[in-house]
Structure formats: structure tokens, C-alpha cells
């Protein structure tokens, strides 16, 4: 058995590549969402023979902008290089004044995404979104929001809520935590008024009854989730924290089509679908011109809200 393990390790390691041999850049440290996406892609691509010796390389830093910059400068015209990214990158490019943007790579497809959820501790006297908005209007400083790092999706969501409710977005009392876990602890421990994070972070707690789910940022109700959308609550917000894969800049149309086909094959595979459901990720696959348009819209909207919050001049 030990032999088997080692043998299979070895086989996968030294098998000579017959097909595309992708190197997937995860512009983050091991363990985060982008790294997991990249490693899941690697696994599916290896197992399904799309790219038998796909590799993952971590280039962490500054909301993915370091990885993005390195990727776009070092891989011009390289059809075997991929980078994982996501909505957080859109904000990070703006707040960090990154010289490189998503225009400097070739976005291929959106793979998965999560909607934002707004929760309060079960012991809170706030029962619904209207209650929370009322408090916010009364005294924005008294409503403390726990979420991820400044300028990230969670912060943007709070800014959008304030703006939609007619409250000055610069007046929000947003408490940035380093990760979903720490923010969740602050909410569960009744340290803050409300919490904002991706739905998956809160789902188990909501089911267990320790958190009250007020609303989700989806355009329409999500199956199996007992909560109204923000739109239903009178706040016109549709925000998805998506993850995507992009290829190197300067590819020919042929090369781009080949990469897109490989990614589509992966995203439609049973193996990938199983991985998504195991990990609780939503399949929000979107490619081609539709994805490009969506990306464009997201960039414009994000720039506007970051200016309103005061993070981007």
C-alpha cells in the first residue's frame, strides 16, 4: 500500500505531458479561497486528464495584485499560464493604486461565487433588515459592522447598504477583521451590532440558531436559504463575491479559445461539480462576452462605492 501511494505520487509527478501543462497562479497564501480554487482546479485537471501535470504556484500579496502584476509581466503570450482571481482583486487594484489591472490579463471565465449575508447575533433585538436600517439612520456610529479587511467585499457591501439607505457611506462604523473566522467570533460573542460576510461563513451558525440571517445580496432568493434579498428589503444591491480564472495577456484568438475550451471542460465535468458541492461552492460559471460585460460593470460599480466610502480618491 505504501508502495502504491508512492508509486502513484511518482507516476503523477514524472508523467510526461502530452497535453497542455498549465501552471495555475494562486495570488494568495495557501489556505485561502483563491488557493483552494487553484488547487481544486489542479486536482480536477489532473484527474480528468485535461492537464496531467498541472502545477499550482502561490504568489501572495496585496489582495492578489502582486500575483497579477507578476503574472501579466512574465507570461505574455504564454498559453499554459493561468491565474485565479476574484472580486476582491477588483477592489484591491483600486485601493492599492495597482499599476496592473484586470485589463492586463485575459479573463476566461467566472467559476464560482458567493453572495454576501447580513446577520446579527441571535440575542440581538434587531429582527429584520428594516430594523437594522432604522438603527443605522438614527446613529450610524452606534451600528458596528464586523467583516473582512478594509476595502474588501464585505466593506463594499456595507458601503452599498448605507448608500442605498440614504446614510453617508463615510460615516459607517466598519470593523475590519483579518478573516471570516475572527469576524464571526466577534459577532457570536456579541461584540458588534451586525456582521457581513459570504453566506457560507454563516450558514452553519444560522442553521444552529446562534445567528439571525437578515438578508442576502443575491438578485433573487436563494434556494434553501430562508432570508429575503436586500432588494426585497428596499435596498437595491446585487453583489456577488466571485472567483474567476484568467489567462496570460497577448494570446491569439486560437490560444484563447483553446484555454476557454479546457476550462469549460473542467467546469462542466462531474468531478468539478462534485468538488463544488463538497465544498459548498455555488456554480456561477460564466464565460465569453457575457463575463466580460459583467466584469466591466463590476469594476465601474466598485470604483464608485469605494470613492463614496472614502478609500479611493
Amino acid at each position: 500500500m505504501k508502495h502504491l501511494v508512492l508509486a502513484s505520487l511518482f507516476a503523477s509527478a514524472i508523467a510526461l505531458p502530452a497535453m497542455a501543462d498549465y501552471t495555475i497562479i494562486a495570488p494568495a497564501n495557501p489556505g485561502g479561497g483563491w488557493d483552494q480554487t487553484a488547487r481544486t482546479m489542479q486536482q480536477v485537471m489532473q484527474e480528468d486528464g485535461i492537464s496531467p501535470s498541472a502545477q499550482v504556484q502561490n504568489v501572495p500579496g496585496a489582495g492578489g495584485t502582486i500575483g497579477l502584476a507578476q503574472f501579466s509581466s512574465q507570461n505574455k503570450g504564454n498559453p499554459d499560464a493561468l491565474i485565479v482571481g476574484g472580486y476582491v482583486m477588483v477592489g484591491a487594484i483600486l485601493t492599492n493604486n495597482s499599476p496592473v489591472s484586470l485589463k492586463d490579463v485575459t479573463p476566461i471565465a467566472r467559476l464560482t461565487g458567493e453572495y454576501e449575508a447580513i446577520v446579527v447575533p441571535a440575542a440581538s433585538d434587531i429582527q429584520d433588515m428594516a430594523g437594522l436600517v432604522a438603527k443605522l439612520k438614527e446613529n450610524p456610529g452606534a451600528v458596528s459592522w464586523a467583516g473582512g479587511s478594509a476595502g474588501g467585499t464585505d466593506h463594499i457591501a456595507v458601503g452599498m447598504i448605507a448608500k442605498a439607505a440614504g446614510v453617508d457611506p463615510t460615516k459607517i462604523n466598519y470593523i475590519a477583521y483579518s478573516g471570516g473566522g475572527e469576524a464571526l467570533a466577534a459577532i457570536l460573542g456579541n461584540q458588534v451590532t451586525a456582521g457581513v460576510s459570504s453566506l457560507g461563513e454563516f450558514e452553519a451558525q444560522v442553521k444552529a440558531g446562534t445567528l439571525r440571517l437578515l438578508a442576502v445580496s443575491a438578485p433573487e432568493r436563494i434556494e434553501g436559504v430562508d432570508a429575503p434579498t436586500l432588494k426585497e428589503s428596499g435596498l437595491d444591491i446585487d453583489l456577488q463575491n466571485w472567483r474567476m480564472v484568467a489567462a496570460a495577456p497577448g494570446l491569439s484568438d486560437e490560444q484563447k479559445a483553446k484555454v476557454t475550451a479546457d476550462i469549460e471542460k473542467m467546469a462542466k465535468s462531474e468531478n468539478w461539480q462534485k468538488q463544488l458541492s463538497d465544498k459548498g461552492w455555488m456554480d456561477t460559471y460564466l464565460a465569453g462576452p457575457e463575463f466580460d460585460a459583467q466584469l466591466e460593470a463590476d469594476v465601474t460599480a466598485t470604483q464608485a462605492i469605494l470613492k463614496d466610502i472614502g478609500l479611493v480618491k
Partner: peptide, 8 residues
Amino acid sequence: IDQLTGQA
């Protein structure tokens, strides 16, 4: 980057 305000 200052984590709480996003300032470099």
C-alpha cells in the same frame, strides 16, 4: 497596508 483602513 493598515488592515483597518486600507491605507498603505
